[in-house]
Design a binder for these strands. Structure first.
Lengths: 258, 258
DNA sequence: CGAATAGTGTCTGTAAGACACTATTCC
DNA sequence: GGAATAGTGTCTTACAGACACTATTCG
């Protein structure tokens, strides 16, 4: 193997002789930010680390990519193992890859970050790796996602704070032009339920009347069922119940206020 | 190390004992789709592979991530080495990571895909790795990016066709709401030049009059210089010359036709 | 002059957001 | 009735896209 620091070796010769097998060992992991709405808040599934490094800190569920699977499959496997959900219960998509050489003190670990969206889960299930697993409100993590600076920050392991920030921004953007919001709900739901998803993810109030009209105007976003249900809070006029429609993008988009 | 296929080992015990250092060797590479506009066409920089696998096929410039750099730095290094450009000459951003276990027949290689945007480069510079490097029109690669099916497909190595497809889609989307288009130009430029960038990337004609008004209405997109230049084709009224403004996003967005 | 490109004026349809109002339930 | 939620009507402003027109150059 050529020595990268040998000054007598020119760039061209170095590159030709470059052999990845001669590199220090690297690993590729996945980390998943599973977002859900609980108690009107956007929450993320975190596991408490039982081992060093970052023992006692909260971390995203994750694991190494195995030889026979791609990173999508690894993320789905980790999530089903960790939560007991099946792949049909959540929507999963790749965010980006985090590659700081020092992000894991043990060795070089590249992490492919994922974001997943799920309806309110019965209750967090502690997976095999985790001493403890729970949903925590994203607003309580001190991630400067909101206009006001938060104070009660939680100690997050590795660069998982950044992954969660990126996941939330992805969710906020995709609510505008896709039908993603229905992934946070189980059918049937009311348009009030749907509006509260938008409010929780965006951290903004949304005008009920205008939202109602725009959600119905977006073709294939929601389909009426033949039922009416109690108003979401128990008071008020019972609302029409809907289920997700066949569309995946919504036109015109539901734009974020401001 | 636990044996992943040992049926007597339960999942929990397996995961606890899981040691990434005992995995088969994996490598992490970057591959960069450098897009530019030449002769009114969207083109991508490709290098002809001199070695197996895919000898003689065209591939994106790429290379392995070194121990002391993150993937962004690796992509910038590969691009400057391969083209002679400096980091200020192009805009670089991460696309996504490609992780099919069989994407490279030699060993397990994860590839972090990048897209870069550059103004028309003096001429492609063959890098140390490449027997031959050149820009090829994206429309000639047979990637089903256009409405009509293309025929003259070029043999692309690995999964680089997919990376190029993703890069083009990223470029198309970002032209709508960012000032990315100016990355394809060198100052000073006319609004006609800018419009032709949009037309080449989108593969659609854009109404000259409306484009003119909308580009000027987007605050900070372009700034007038105190010069006028010849009309882009040499005929017609000389146009006002502009340079890029300070904005990075444009409001209201320049939406794609259809 | 005609051809070509630059740039402006103006109209129409659509949509966002604000506001007000009606409808239906529980207490 | 009052409070609360569901749902509709309507007004104003903004903008996209179409079209027509003027402005300035070359040959």
């Amino acid at each position: 193997m050529p020595d990268a620091l040998d000054p007598t070796l020119d760039e061209q010769t170095f590159l030709r002789g470059y052999d990845p097998a001669a590199y220090p060992q690297v690993a590729v992991a996945v980390d998943i930010a599973l977002l859900t709405i609980r108690a009107g808040q956007l929450q993320v599934l975190l596991v408490e680390r039982g081992a060093h490094p970052f023992q006692g800190s909260w971390a995203l569920p994750g694991g190494f990519v195995r030889p026979d699977e791609d990173s999508d499959a690894a993320a789905a496997r980790v999530l089903t193992t960790e939560t007991g959900l099946t792949a049909d219960d959540f929507h999963l998509e790749q965010l980006k890859t985090y590659s700081d050489p020092d992000r894991d003190p043990r060795m070089r670990v590249f992490s492919v970050g994922y974001v997943a969206f799920a309806p309110d889960v019965p209750d967090p299930v502690a997976g095999p790796e985790a001493a403890n697993a729970r949903f925590l409100a994203v607003a309580d993590l001190g991630l400067s996602l909101t206009d006001v600076e938060d104070e009660l920050a939680v100690a997050l392991a590795f660069d998982h704070g950044r992954i969660i920030t990126d996941a939330v921004e992805r969710a906020r953007a995709k609510l505008e032009y896709t039908t993603l919001a229905t992934s946070f709900l189980t059918a049937p739901f009311t348009l009030g339920d749907l509006r509260r998803i938008y409010e929780a993810v965006w951290g903004r109030t949304v005008h009920p009347g205008n939202f109602h009209r725009k959600a119905l105007a977006a073709d294939g976003f929601v389909e009426p069922t033949d039922q009416r249900g109690a108003a979401s809070t128990g008071r008020g006029r019972p609302a029409q119940l809907y289920r997700p429609g066949p569309a995946t993008v919504i036109t015109p988009p539901l734009t974020r206020p401001e």
